[in-house]
Design a binder for these strands. Structure first.
Length: 781
DNA sequence: AGCTGTGGCAGGGAGG
DNA sequence: CCTCCCTGCCAC
């Protein structure tokens, strides 16, 4: 019995398990009842080497470190796929039994969990199917195919296509499941049987839906339980299960189990897409479809609470609505799923799982895959904290223009490649090598995509390069992640510090060349170009001039140009494009926690200020005040929407122990009849007459607001409006400010003599004192 | 049970 | 009033 892994850090608790050469098994080791374990000693561990299957596609298992040497009494085999039962038995027979090698004080296995991930993955990608009763020889041939099909470490395998898909939609109204269905039990029972039949007939590799994991599947399973129908949609005829139903046998919570099929939730796809883009307002299906331009003009919309009524009154309408949902979900998936799909060729995880994996987990898999390929041990996570981040500052507040935004392309990855930054623990040195390799692959693919004549080919290549971009951008975050095996806080700090230096250099150079730096954040700069730099071409070449002063491989690019900019605070500003489009950034201007009327007010006010329309600004204020006072707004405009992070129980406990204060959102949640879970949104408004009421004592659920007897707290909401107006205080002289943001009285408002003040932000000792009007040229237009 | 990072603004409530 | 603490949301 020789340990399969070699390594320098076995003293840190590295274990080798020798499974006698079957790596298509996922080994899961649970602490036996007789074993005392300590939580802090639990750590995930790890891949088997594979003398027989393919390199890299090894499976993961977990060990619980036990105190002292212990032997378990038996070994159990749990094949996740009954189809493979024979194969497992065959392999075990062939190798007699599992042998384990124990190092230091680690315990032996007590359970084996089979998940044929590489096989499903291969099948999915090649469009081949695994059939019931397949013999071990058939499987073995498949495995040989898989071997030839893999290209090697951290390279894409040969691409094929996603398998057949089916989209699942469940409909209910949001008053609860009972009202929709209870009157029509027979119909529903038949529908469930139809669902099972259709899925088995179509036999899809992938089942998709928007929020399918949190809603459609659990909903359908609940209905199945109520009607005593088995949702037998697994490829082997087994029933679909939710995580709870399966226990926590090493699976992710919420991970659905449909044997032989992948579940892809377009909600997850959208969320991870927006993590890099960051400009979506919501992740709801209807919004997302409109965002991507997938919603057709004659799309049917039915409000959630009208679904059962619509079904009763105009069933064809509801059918059309459901089909529109399906169509849009399908288009969103076609647009976004390739990013995950192409990663299945790089990572040893199944397609469905990859769509739900975080970015650090992906890096971890890449690292582990290569370490295991080289049969080297893996380190444990280091303890510590990262101490630095990006540099952010605001040099000028007020209205300026024209403004150019220049940013460094892929700042952190470039630094890591340029300075060879990688974890000290990475003795094989693959982290940086991998980053370099992936980056050059991406550039190659990007160029191919640009050159591709065929539009299908182009979008396939584009998806591939987007997958890589996401991976590449995750390398930095991985360094500072506390649970990462290869984390290295010192190196994470080295990356951010180098980034700060580059940004400061850019600022210094811009000033040297007579640009006026307005706001900077991490990897980009807003600045007013020098007076003789007019027009896009001049600005572009100005940025090039600055870029020449930077270290090699650091590419400063012109990212955007704007007619005017309102600079408010760090990470808070508004931009007016040459197409007159207004974009606002920052939590104090666009936060979802601001009431809708407040967001509308701020937006209109910013727009008027950017256009130097002081009379308009005053009118916006006056109109908003009168709308509040005249009860002209409906509840959705002044209600506040809050997401509950904790359960009501946690909240109560923490309030009781004085760890946190009472808050309106949770108190409203308490009033609701249904149980409120964490992550849910609560919509409420403030009642009473005193503007200084305590929110948690004077709050009501928005649904309870009655337009005929409006009881919102007018004084409170006027006070809120004045708080929003305060944001603009520094843009005006005090005497002007009080006149603009005040109701009309005896004398009509006049903007005569009002000027917008632009100032160098305080606390900038190296910035010479500036006077109003000196920033940019637009005031003289 | 799994979870990528730091920096920044604002609001509400409690207590000085 | 102010400060502190906590939570939520946002930029990159």
């Amino acid at each position: 019995m020789t340990p399969l892994l070699r390594g320098h850090n076995t003293e840190e608790g590295i274990l080798a398990v020798h499974p006698s050469g079957n790596a298509s098994m996922r080994l899961y080791i649970r602490g036996a009842k007789s074993v005392t374990t300590r939580d802090e000693e639990f750590f995930p561990f790890f891949y088997l080497s594979d003398p027989f299957l393919l390199d890299g596609f090894n499976q993961k298992f977990w060990l619980k470190k036990a105190e002292g040497a212990l032997a378990f009494s038996h070994i159990c085999v749990f094949p996740a796929w009954p189809v493979l039962w024979d194969a497992v038995r065959h392999m075990l027979d062939r190798f007699n039994t599992l042998t384990t090698t124990r190092i230091e004080s680690y315990a032996q296995l007590d359970a084996i969990h089979l998940i044929p991930d590489p096989v499903t993955q291969f099948l999915l990608q090649t469009g081949r199917t695994l059939f019931k009763g397949m013999s071990f020889d058939d499987l073995h041939r498949l495995q040989l195919d898989i071997e030839t099909y893999t290209d090697g470490p951290y390279r894409f395998s040969k691409a094929t296509r996603p398998g057949d898909r089916i989209i699942l939609i469940a409909l209910t109204d949001n008053r609860g499941w009972n009202t929709v269905i209870d009157g029509r039990k027979h119909d529903e029972r038949r529908m469930l049987h139809d669902l099972v039949r259709v899925i088995n007939e179509r036999d899809p590799d992938v089942i998709e839906g928007h929020n399918i994991i949190a809603f459609d599947l659990p909903y359908i399973l609940t209905r199945c339980a109520r009607h005593d129908v088995e949702l037998t949609i697994g490829r082997d005829g087994s029933a679909a299960k939710t995580a709870e139903a399966r226990g926590s046998a090493g699976e992710y919570p919420g991970e659905p189990a449909i044997a032989g099929r992948h579940v892809v939730d377009t909600l997850h796809l959208v969320q991870s897409y927006d993590q890099s883009k960051r400009n979506m307002e919501s992740y709801g299906l209807k919004y997302v479809a409109r965002y991507f331009g997938f919603a057709s003009p004659d799309r049917v919309y039915v409000n959630g609470d009208r679904i059962s009524a619509t079904w009763d009154e105009e069933p064809e309408m509801l059918v059309r609505y459901a089909l529109d949902d399906v169509r849009e979900t399908g288009l969103i998936s076609e647009h976004l799923s390739p990013i995950s799909f192409y990663l299945t060729q790089l990572l040893p995880s199944p397609y469905g799982t990859i769509t739900r994996m975080g970015s650090a987990a992906k890096i971890e898999q890449l690292m582990s895959r290569e370490y295991l390929r080289q049969k080297h041990s893996l380190p444990r996570p280091s303890q510590g904290i990262q101490t630095t981040g990006g540099y952010t500052d605001v040099y000028v507040t007020g209205v300026v223009g024209p403004v150019v935004h220049a940013d460094v392309a892929s700042l952190y990855p470039s630094i890591m490649i340029g300075n060879g930054i990688g974890p000290a623990k990475d003795t094989l040195g693959i982290f940086t090598a991998m980053l370099e390799e992936l980056t050059s692959q991406r550039l190659e693919i990007k160029q191919k995509a640009r050159a591709a004549a065929d539009s299908v080919e182009r979008s396939r290549l584009d998806a591939e390069q987007s997958s890589l971009k996401i991976l590449i951008n995750s390398f930095y975050g991985y360094l500072g992640y506390s649970r990462a095996l290869f984390n290295d806080y010192a190196q994470a700090d080295a990356v951010t510090q180098a980034g700060q230096e580059i940004l400061r250099k850019i600022i210094a150079e811009l000033r040297e060349h007579f640009g006026i730096v307005v706001e900077v954040d991490t990897d980009g700069v807003f600045f007013v170009p020098p007076p003789d730099c007019i027009g896009e071409e001049a600005e572009r070449s100005f940025v090039r001039t600055i870029a020449l002063t930077l270290p090699p491989r650091i590419f400063l690019e012109l990212d955007g140009r704007y007619r005017r900019m309102l600079s408010y605070k760090k990470k808070n500003y508004a931009l007016l494009g040459y197409d007159d489009r207004l974009t606002m950034k920052g939590s104090s201007l666009i936060s979802r926690s601001i009431e809708r009327f407040g967001r509308a007010f701020v937006r209109q006010a910013v727009e008027r200020i950017l256009n130097n329309d002081i009379d308009g600004l005053h009118r916006v204020y006056v109109n908003t005040v009168s709308a509040i006072q005249g009860h002209e707004m409906s509840v959705s405009e002044f209600a506040r929407v809050e997401t509950l992070k904790d359960s009501l129980e946690t909240y109560d406990r923490e309030v009781l122990t004085g760890k946190r204060n009472r808050s309106a959102a949770y108190e409203v949640a308490r009033q609701l009849e249904r149980r409120v879970r964490s992550g849910e949104r609560v919509v409420y408004y403030i009642t009473g007459t005193d503007p200084n009421v305590k929110g948690f004592e004077n709050c009501k659920q928005a649904e309870d607001w009655d337009p005929h007897f409006p009881d919102e707290n007018i004084a409170y909401y006027v006070k809120r409006l004045d708080e929003f107006a305060q944001k603009f205080k520094d843009f005006f002289r005090p005497q002007d400010f009080v006149r603009i943001f005040a109701p009309d009285d005896l004398f009509p408002f006049s903007s005569e003599g009002v000027e917008i003040i632009t100032t160098a932000a305080p606390g900038q000792p190296d910035e010479p004192e500036e006077t109003p009007g000196k920033f940019g040229i637009w005031l003289d237009e």
